[in-house]
């Protein structure tokens, strides 16, 4: 059975920010390849429109006035936040970009 290389699996896992173990890499080498072979079929489709259909919502877009304000008290968020200090959300130190 055709497989993705280990590097290819690690590349897509990195794109998705998902850690993969050695065992998983082997499984993904096969399963991701199957799906990627499937989507490859798109390249053979002919007779298509020039235009794209991004969303089937055709009634335009109602813009919001700059005067409408709706703020939520931060305390409501707190019980769902994994790590917070005071009203700040805490994460491991970000490499300052």
């Amino acid at each position: 059975m055709e497989k993705l290389s280990k590097e290819e699996v690690l590349h897509v896992a990195r794109l998705a920010r998902i850690a993969v173990s050695e065992d998983e890499i082997e499984k993904y080498q096969i399963s991701l390849k199957q799906l990627l072979d499937d989507v490859e079929k798109i390249k053979d489709i002919n007779d298509i429109s020039e235009d794209v259909l991004v969303t089937p919502a055709f009634e335009g877009c109602k813009l919001r006035s700059d005067d409408e304000v709706d703020t939520t008290d931060f305390s409501k968020f707190k019980s769902n936040i994994p790590h917070s200090v005071g009203d700040f959300i805490e994460v491991p130190v970000m490499i300052n970009e």
Binding site: V69, T71, F74, F77, D87
Partner: peptide, 22 residues
Amino acid sequence: TKTKMFSNTLNNYGAKENSQVN
């Protein structure tokens, strides 16, 4: 602007941390 681009909270520089959110 008075409010944010894609949400309706205030665009308010210098406010207390996480007080202008939804």
